[in-house]
Simulated scan of single mutants.
Amino acid sequence: MAHKLNENISEVTKLVMEEHADFTLECRLGELLEDRGLTLQELSYLTGIRIPSLSFIVNEKKSTINIGHLIAIAKALRITDIRQLYMFDMEDSTRKVFNKERREQEGLGMTDKMRETIAKHKEIKERESEEWKKQQEAKKNK
């Protein structure tokens, strides 16, 4: 399932998210609850997390993960491996690209492509930082 992007993310994060759009994070909480015969209500009692929040997680409607919620769910369900709860999902072609690039990276630290990406993203982040500073200054002067 494609996750909705938080509209408050930076331009660089949007670029990264768009680069391999098929790369997603699949939540397996619904399957876990079904396998264990638990309801959202019961999980809510076990974790203290509100049912609507749990429902958003199960239905993958959230673009962020609350670490406290993640830990509470893992403890309640006795999860010992994050892959029981979340799994990366991607097309085989993306997996092949990632594996190839990771092999190129081994022993080098960074590849030329990574250096180019850093330079490009650094420019964007610096521009965003300057824009933010101008906005903060304008707020002060009001």
Rank of each mutant, 00 (worst) to 15 (best):
I49C: 04
R50V: 15
D112C: 10
S53Q: 13
K113F: 07
N66K: 06
Q84G: 06
M87A: 12
H69W: 04
M87W: 06
R127Y: 05
R103Q: 14
E106K: 13
H20K: 11
T94D: 00
K96T: 12
R103Y: 10
S44E: 02
T111E: 03
W132F: 08
F98P: 01
L70E: 06
L108P: 06
K113M: 11
E123D: 13
D35V: 14
D89W: 07
T47I: 01
T39I: 09
E91Q: 14
I67M: 13
N6R: 01
D92S: 14
I9S: 00
L15T: 12
A76S: 05
L25R: 10
E7S: 13
N99G: 13
K133I: 15
E101H: 05
F88C: 05
I9N: 00
T39H: 00
S55N: 11
K61C: 06
W132C: 13
G107A: 05
A76C: 02
N8R: 13
M110A: 12
F98W: 05
T80E: 09
D81H: 01
L46S: 06
T13N: 00
H121S: 12
E31C: 12
Y45L: 15
K100W: 11
E130K: 13
T94S: 03
G68A: 14
R50K: 15
E131C: 13
I65L: 07
R28G: 01
G30R: 01
L32T: 06
Y86E: 03
E19D: 09
I51R: 12
C27F: 03
M114N: 04
K75G: 08
F98G: 04
I51T: 13
F56T: 12
S10Y: 08
I79H: 03
K61N: 07
C27Q: 04
R102S: 13
E131G: 09
E34K: 00
F56V: 15
L40Q: 09
K75T: 08
Q41S: 07
E106P: 00
M17L: 15
P52N: 02
R115S: 10
R78F: 10
E60I: 03
E106G: 11
L77W: 02
G30P: 02
R115I: 15
E130C: 14
N6L: 11
M90A: 04
M17Y: 15
E18M: 12
G68T: 11
P52D: 04
I79D: 05
K120N: 01
G68I: 12
V12W: 02
T117D: 08
R103L: 15
L70Q: 07
M87E: 10
A21E: 12
G109M: 01
A74I: 00
K113D: 08
E104K: 09
L25G: 07
V97H: 07
A74G: 04
P52C: 10
K100Q: 12
K100R: 12
W132I: 15
E116V: 14
I65D: 03
M90P: 01
R102G: 10
E11P: 00
